[in-house]
C-alpha cells in the first residue's frame, strides 16, 4: 500500500466529500422538503398501466440523469482526470451505475420501502410495467441494506469513489495507477470510519456491497438485452444516447 500522510488523507477526504456534495443531485434538505410524499394508488396504477417500452424509456432517462451527476463526481476526484482517457471511460462504463445504486440510499425511505422517483416516493409496485420484478426487488433490498449502515455523507462519498476507482475492471491500460488511487481512497475511507468511531465490521460490510453491486449491474445488462431483443427500434430511437453508450 502507498504511504500517505495524515494530512494527505484529510485532504483527500475533504476533496471527495466536497465533490460528492456538489454532484449528489439532491441535497438532504431538498429531500426533506419533498416531505417523503408517496404516490397515491391511482398514480401507482397509472405507472403500472404504461406500456412496457414507455416505462423502460422513462427509467432509462432517470438513470441517465443520475449518471451525468456521477460523471461530474468522477471528474472532481483527485487523480481521476490524470488517468488516461481509456481508463476514465472504462471506469465510468463499469462503475457509474454502481455509484447510482450506492447513492440511492440517500433517496430511499426504509420504513416505507420507497425511493424518490419522478417527483414522489415510489414502492417497487410502481415499476411493475418494466417486467423485471426480481431485479427491482433486489435493487430495493440493496438500498435498504445500504441504509441500515447509516453512512454519513463523508463515508458515502468515499465509498462511492472507492467503487468508481475499482482497479480490477477489465480493459484498464494503467491498472497500477488506478490501484494506487483506489488504495489511497480506501485508506481515506478507513481514516474517516475510525474518526467517526464506527465499529470494525463496517468496512467488511462495505466490501460485501461491492460484489452485490456487480451482480445488480450485470442483471441490469441482462434485462436490457432481453428488452432490446424485443424492442430494438425503441432502444435505438428513444433511449438516451449516453445510456446506449454505457450499456449498449
Amino acid at each position: 500500500p502507498p504511504t500517505v500522510s495524515m494530512a494527505e488523507l484529510d485532504h483527500l477526504v475533504q476533496i471527495i466529500s466536497k465533490s460528492h456534495l456538489e454532484t449528489c443531485q439532491y441535497l438532504r434538505e431538498e429531500l426533506q422538503q419533498m416531505s417523503w410524499q408517496n404516490f397515491l394508488q391511482d398514480e401507482v396504477e397509472r405507472y403500472q398501466s404504461k406500456p412496457r417500452e414507455v416505462m423502460w424509456q422513462l427509467c432509462a432517462v432517470k438513470i441517465t440523469e443520475a449518471i451525468q451527476y456521477v460523471v461530474e463526481f468522477a471528474k472532481r476526484i483527485d487523480g481521476f482526470m490524470d488517468l488516461c482517457q481509456n481508463d476514465q471511460i472504462v471506469l465510468l462504463k463499469a462503475g457509474s451505475l454502481e455509484v447510482v445504486f450506492v447513492r440511492m440510499c440517500r433517496v430511499f425511505d426504509s420504513q416505507n420501502n420507497t425511493v424518490y422517483f419522478d417527483g414522489k416516493f415510489a414502492g417497487p409496485d410502481v415499476f411493475k410495467a418494466l417486467g423485471c420484478d426480481d431485479l427491482i426487488t433486489s435493487v430495493f433490498d440493496f438500498a435498504k441494506s445500504m441504509c441500515s449502515l447509516h453512512l454519513t455523507e463523508d463515508e458515502l462519498a468515499l465509498f462511492s469513489a472507492f467503487v468508481l476507482l475499482s482497479a480490477d475492471r477489465s480493459w484498464l491500460q494503467e491498472k497500477l495507477q488506478v490501484e494506487k488511487l483506489q488504495q489511497k481512497i480506501q485508506l481515506a475511507l478507513q481514516h474517516v470510519l475510525q474518526k467517526n468511531q464506527r465499529e470494525d465490521g463496517v468496512l467488511n460490510k462495505l466490501r460485501c456491497k461491492v460484489s452485490a453491486l456487480r451482480s445488480l449491474c450485470s442483471r441490469h445488462t441482462e434485462k436490457l438485452s432481453a428488452f432490446r431483443a424485443i424492442y430494438p427500434d425503441i432502444v435505438r430511437t428513444h433511449f438516451p444516447p449516453l445510456y446506449k453508450e454505457l450499456f449498449g
Binding site: 451525468q68 460523471v71 461530474e72 471528474k75 472532481r76 482526470m81 482517457q85 476514465q88 471511460i89 465510468l92 462504463k93 444516447p241 449516453l242 453508450e245 454505457l246
Partner: peptide, 16 residues
C-alpha cells in the same frame, strides 16, 4: 473514441 462520443464530451467539458 467514436463509440463513446458523449462520455468523451462530458469528460472534456470543464467542471462547472
Amino acid at each position: 473514441k467514436e463509440k463513446h462520443k458523449i462520455l468523451h464530451q462530458l469528460l472534456q467539458n470543464s467542471t462547472s
